[in-house]
Each structure stands twice: as C-alpha cells, then as structure tokens.
Design a protein around this nucleic acid. Sequence first.
DNA 1: TAGATTGTTAATCGATTAACAATC
DNA 2: TAGATTGTTAATCGATTAACAATC
Lengths: 219, 219
Amino acid sequence: MEKHIPVSISKQALQRMPYYLQALRAARDSGAEIISAPTVAAQLGLNEVQVRKDFASVSDTAGKPKTGFQTSELISAIERTLGYDNSNDAVLVGAGSLGRALLSYRGFEAYGLSIVTAFDVDPNLTGGEISGKQVLPMNKLESICRNMNIHIGIITVPASQAQSVCDALVGSGVLAIWNFAPVHLNTPDGILVQNENMAASLALLSKHLSERLGSKLND
Amino acid sequence: MEKHIPVSISKQALQRMPYYLQALRAARDSGAEIISAPTVAAQLGLNEVQVRKDFASVSDTAGKPKTGFQTSELISAIERTLGYDNSNDAVLVGAGSLGRALLSYRGFEAYGLSIVTAFDVDPNLTGGEISGKQVLPMNKLESICRNMNIHIGIITVPASQAQSVCDALVGSGVLAIWNFAPVHLNTPDGILVQNENMAASLALLSKHLSERLGSKLND
DNA sequence: TAGATTGTTAATCGATTAACAATC
DNA sequence: TAGATTGTTAATCGATTAACAATC
C-alpha cells in the first residue's frame, strides 16, 4: 500500500510539460533564476492557474508568493517526471520512407530516446545499414528485444501490416508503441499505444483552410 | 447570415475521422456495402454512441435502424469533410534532418497535401534540390507564397528560430501552420497552428514505461 | 413479430477556469 | 505596508457515455 507518486498527472498536463521545459530553459539561459506562473502562462498562451497546478503536480518544492518558482528547480522536476534522464532504447519496424526519416533524425537523443536497430520484411534492405543502424529481418525481432531488454517499438510500416507488427512487438516484450501508421491498433491491457497520426493532424489543417477560404470561393 | 455547415465538428471528432476512413475503406474493400456503428466502434475501441454522433455530424444521409450505414456514402462524406478531394499546396521551412525526411516522405499526397518547395537559411543547401523539390533562400519565401497562393507552412527549423519563421510565414499569407518545432508559437487570430510535437508524444511513452518498469527496479 | 440498430435527450465525467484567502 | 503571486476550493465548460423511445 505504498503510494510514492502523490499526484497523478493527466495526459494533457504531461503533454504540456515539454513546452514548459522549453520555456523554462530559455528563461534560465537568459538569466532568470526565478520565474512566475503568470509569466510562463502568457508566453505559452495558457491559463495561469493551469500552469500553477501543472507545476505543483511535478515539483515538491512550493512556489513563493510574490516572487514565483525557482527556474532550475522546476526544470529538473520536469526532466525527472518525463524521464529524460534515463535513456530508453527502441526498435523501429518498417524501413520505408518514413522509417528511414526517423532513423536519420538526430533529434530524439535529447529526449532520452535511442533507436538501436530497424527491422524490415524486404530482403533487399535487411543486412544493410541506414544512418549507421542495422536493418534486420523480422525473425530476429523477438530475440533482439528480449536480449537487449527493449520496451519501445516504433511502427512505420504500411497500415495493412501495422496490426501484425504490433502483435509481434507485444509478443517480444515491448510495453510502449509509437505508432506512425494511420490505423487503430488493438493491444492487450497495459500496453501503451501513442499514435502519431499525421492524417489526423492534416485533417485539422485542412478543415481550418476550407473554413477560411471556402466561403470566399463559394460566393 | 448563411449557415451552410449545419453541425460544427469538435476537434476531437475531426481527429477520429481518419481512423473511421481507414476502417470504412477496409470494410468496403472486403465487400461490406453496409456497416453498423457498433461494428466500427468495436474495431476502433470507441463508444458506439460516439461513432453514431460522429457519423451524423459529417453525413446528411441517415443510417437505417437494424441495418446500419452505407459504407461508400460514409466514406465520401468523410473525405468531403476532410477536404482530401481538393489538394492543398504547402511550403516547408528548414531543410535539416527532419525537413528532408518530410520532403522525401511519399505519404502525404493521399491526404491531399503536396509540398511544393523548401526554404532554408543555409547557403550550402539553397539552390539545390531534395527529393526533386527545390530549396530556396528565405528571401524568396513571401513572393513564392503569394504567387502560388500557398496557405500551409510546415516548420522544421530548430526551436530557437521557429517563432521568426512563423512570423515570416504569416506575413506571406499562410493561414495554417504545421509546427514540428518543440515550441509554442504565438500567432494572430485566425491562424491555425497544429503542433506535431514529438517531445510531447515521447513524454507519454516515457511516463508509461517508468510506471510499468519503475516499481520493479526500485524494489 | 422480435430484436438489432438508429437518433436524441439526460447524466456523468474530467479538465479548465474563476474566485478568493493566505503569504511574502 | 501594499500588491503581486501563490495554492485551493468551487463553478464552468465541453466531451463522452448511459438511457430509452423510434424504426425497419
């Protein structure tokens, strides 16, 4: 009956954390040792109460009335919450155009993610390397994941194959899946699927444009 | 005072549309001329009332009790809503590792997005091509956007430059911004910013893992 | 007919925001 | 001190879900 995590953080709040982090680091780098919630809120276009609550949910040191919060303290509190300190290894399945893109993208290390290998069904790709990372055949998936203790799988295969790849990953001990295929994946309880569905983003962009431009064109 | 759009669709509902589309197309391709809301709901792990409401919000033909909805009718209703029929041109700013990745990604056309050119500050890149798309210097941004009537800008520059690039895009007549930089962008009213913040996604993955693995390791 | 499915109204749920006393 | 900022409780808001009558 030990509850070490005091406040559980909502999904939404968690997703705001990287924005706080970015703003706080910028503030620190320009010399602000102390920062107030209203300041951050204004910068990020958020409500100040929300910012205060979010800060309270990750940090155990309270803010000081009239002054604010200690910048460096908040930064490390958020980094601790997000686990950017301990690096997470991941495998990527699907070395197509998007897969290759992610393999060569150098931005993930900053967030503690490192893609260790890629897998693909195409025998023309397997055995080779992409951006210094090996591309292995699918039958090596389970042994690699088990041996290297990998718990994150990145899916960049076509929609039609995503579910079977997902099943294979789950069967190999993966606990969290970053899904770039525009499909819903069914998984057992306890497995997190984070969808990075570009189609969903484009849906919003496209709708906004048709609303802004549509009326003019139709008249 | 003409209201042609009857029901306004929530952001969340809009983001579910691509999933419906994928599921409906798959159903149609395997011969299902009629499909029911409970079927789709089960497949996508959603509530069936939600699915019915979502369908009702895009389609003007009602479903038939006991049978369901006409698959093809729903598909075209969603496509119409998302504007996948009319293609949207976009420019991309920042031909770094992520920018190049998106330029070479062939998956966007299916959603009606076509990236026509890229821009970058680096004189080593400008003048060249990436995946058959020209890379132009920043001072050409406004004229290109104006002449080609471009309303979508994709930002793949480092966080520190994202805001100024955003301002330049807005100043060039862009109405919707797809932002891959892990920063909040301030924009005037009427401009849509869709954030594709990988850091925010990683935050969720990372938290889930530390919850699943953390307790074991700490004991 | 019987029963699955539809559309809709009302209840629930969770997150955001407003109000306000406490404090440095 | 005066006033900006904090933390917290209560109100609001919006989306999801439950309940149910209508219908083929």
